[in-house]
Structures are given as C-alpha cells and as structure tokens.
Design a binder for these strands. Structure first.
Lengths: 214, 214
DNA sequence: GGTTGAATTGAACGCGCGTTCAGATAATCA
DNA sequence: TGATTATCTGAACGCGCGTTCAATTCAACC
C-alpha cells in the first residue's frame, strides 16, 4: 500500500509545480535545469520524474491549467455590452495581478512549447480572446461601442491590460482597486462610442445603431 | 595588410548579428547555441569570437543598439500635446512594425541580461517611457488629456502599442497605415479629455484646464 | 613568387544538461 | 516482526554547451 503518513508524495508534487513556476518565470524555461528545480524543493533530480514525464510536460501543464482556470473563472454576465466589458476588464486585471508568474510564463514561453502542446495552448488563448471580441462586436452592433476593427481592438485591449504585470509590484504606489479602476477607465474610453449629446439633442446618435444587423 | 577583396570580415560581422537576431527572436537567447548561429552563417563556432567577445555581448549589443536607435529616431515635435502624442504613437507603431524581431528580443530577453547590461537597457527603456509620460503630463496640465495617473497611462499605452508585434504579419488583413490609424484612434480616446460640448454650450469645459499649473 | 597576416578551421577543454535506473530507505500492512 | 512498496538517492549515460587556441588557408602586397 501507499504510505499515507510520513510520505512526501502529496507534498513534493505541488512543490515541484510551484518551484518550476517560480524558476521558469524568473529565468525562463530554457535557462532552468531540472537539477535547479530539484534543489529548490530539496530532492535529487531523478525524483522529479515520479511527478512529471519530462521537463516539457511541466511547462505545458502550467500553461494549460492556467488558461483553463482563466476561462473557467469568468463567464460573460448576462448584461449590456458595456457592463460585460467592465466585468471582463476588472476580472482580467484582478486575475492577472493574482498570478503574475503564471501570466508571465503563459505569454513568454509559447515558443518553448512542443508543436502539439503549442496548438492546445494557442486554441485556449484564442478562446479567451474570442470572448472579448464577442463583447466588442455586440457593443458595436448596438452602438454603445465605436470600434473600427474588433479583432485589432481585442488584441490592443488585451495587450494593454496584460501589461499591468510588467510593472505592478505588491505594496507599490497604487493599490489594486485603483489600478483596476484606472485600466477600466482607459479601456472604456478607447472603445466607447461618443457620448450622445445631452437629452436636448439625441438625434445625431441614431444613425449608428442602424449600421449593424440589429 | 588586411584582405580587402575576397575577405569575409565585413560580411561575417553583420551576418552574425542578423543570424543572432533572427534565432534569438525565434527560439530565445537561452535556447540558441553559438554553434547554431555559426551554422546559420556558414562558419565554425570558433570564428564567431572574432566578432563578439561572448554570447552575452551579442544579446546586449542588439538590445542596446535597438533602444538607442529608437531614441534617436524620434524627438517630440514642437507642437501641442495631442499632436505630440499622435506623432509618438504613429512613430512607435511604424518603428515596431519595421523591426519585429528586435522589439521582441528587447522585451523578452531582459532577464537574460547580465546585471550590468540590464541596468543600461533598463535606463534606456525608462528614457523612452519618460518621453511619453512627459507628453501625457503636459497634456493633462493644459487640459487636453484627462489622465488620472500619468505613469500608469504611460505603461498602459506602451503595452497596447507594442502588442501590435504579437499579431501583425506582413501581408495580413490590415495594411500598416490602417493599423497605425486604428491604434492612434484608440490611444487618443483612452487619454483624451471629454470633448467640449458643441459651440452652443462650451461652459462645462473650463474647470478642467484650471486644475493644472498653467 | 615569397611573405605577411587577417580569417577561419577543427579539435579540445571542462562542464552541465535531460533522463534512466538499480539500489537504498522507510512507512505501512499482515 | 517481516514483507511490501511508494519514495527517493546517487551514479551513470551520451550529448551539446561556451569558449580557447594552435594550425591552416589564402588574398594582398612587396
């Protein structure tokens, strides 16, 4: 039978993933050796192969689980496009500030994935991007957004939001709620349709909505 | 005397940099060997050391020259902040679309720089960011921009703009002029102060400008 | 045509890599 | 207590790494 007490298996497994995550994020997948990871968790390199078939699988599992988490963690609320966008933006910022290392790896280590693994990760990424694009599309259709090219706007917004991880440090000048609010403000403005003229003159606005299918 | 005809020195040097650039961008600094670079340009690995003291210097030279070029290539025009911002944005997009590999490396390989080299590169990067921040600051002061935090807005804008290199492919759906225009439109809106109400009611606008030093 | 010297080769250095595996260790069960 | 077995060690495998350097090549010059 398996050792259920005193065994280190349930400890070493997670610790392996944590150490790999931290080291990959810090130095890059290619620059980190299995021996370094092993040393970080206090075992010999050979022991790692009880928990991962190889180094590549370690990277792939980190990235896949991260993206699946990201997708599972947020669904577009049943609301107007602008409310959906706010929800998306705020969740994105919050989620990314919580997991800087995972986000960093998922972005930086794409080229170190074996082709099959890359295909899986790329599909998950596109799925996430598609959610934002759908919001922008719908908003453009109903006229609350003014977006010349939804695909470009999607990529521009995601790049802007994800960039928060490059400079944010816990305990820095701005707290998380402020950061979230500032990014939402910039994101909103970058795609919002010009505000309709005050109630006295809502006329000019109508042409917009009629351009879409709805 | 040096061989002036039939000599490969003036050829091998630049070819080394080109090959290193291409391979570093494609596979990452740590994943590329000197032997791979040498094979790419048709010499043995030992010959590379006539042109670079070591592998690290190769990476550093690429990044430093890139950033110095970027800084030398653009100076803020003597104009109003919104015109300066447009100039910055359009130049940034154009420059980055022209040199995707250099941009990619300068962003991705920071962690592979030796500490001394990193300090140099980080200073150059901050210098570039400071130019954008100065534009935003001045625009906020005079009221044409509405930016709650200039540092955050700077980072957000640069991330958004630089992101173009992650999806742009020559010959794709959008031509470069269109891309430039779209990004400028999004950047402009994300920081622009609310448009003053039409000439019939410019009153509400005044409070804004008076908030600054000018 | 012989000399010069920049350009390059090719072998070698020590080292660390990812991975494997026989053997040691120790907690559990019978 | 003795057998079982999950866990881990430690050595080993072949290989490629960054870098060095004596030897070689060969266009240019005298």
């Amino acid at each position: 039978m398996a050792r259920t007490q005193g065994s280190h298996a349930e400890i070493t497994g997670p610790r392996l993933r944590e150490a790999a995550l931290r080291l990959f994020a810090r130095h890059g997948y290619a620059a980190v050796s299995m021996r370094q990871i092993a040393a970080e968790i206090g075992v010999q390199a050979g022991a790692l192969y009880l928990y991962t078939p190889d180094k590549q699988a370690l990277l792939f599992a980190l990235m896949r689980d991260h993206l699946e988490d990201l997708l599972a963690d947020w669904q577009p609320p049943d609301a107007a496009p602008d409310a959906q966008l706010e929800s998306f933006v705020r969740h994105h910022i919050r989620y990314h500030l919580d997991r800087p290392d995972l986000v960093f790896i998922a972005y930086m280590e794409l080229r170190n994935l074996a082709p099959d693994n890359f295909a899986v990760i790329a599909r998950l990424r596109r799925e996430y991007e598609a959610r934002l694009e759908a919001i922008l599309s719908r908003g453009a259709d109903v006229g609350v957004f003014d977006v010349a090219d939804t695909r470009l706007a999607t990529m521009a917004l995601i790049a802007m939001l994800t960039g928060v991880t490059t400079w944010y440090r816990a305990g820095g000048r701005l707290d998380r709620a402020t950061i979230e609010a500032r990014y939402w403000e910039m994101a909103r403005r970058s795609v919002a349709a010009p505000v309709p003229l005050p109630e006295t003159a809502p006329v000019a606005k109508l042409g917009h909505a009629s351009g879409g299918d709805i």
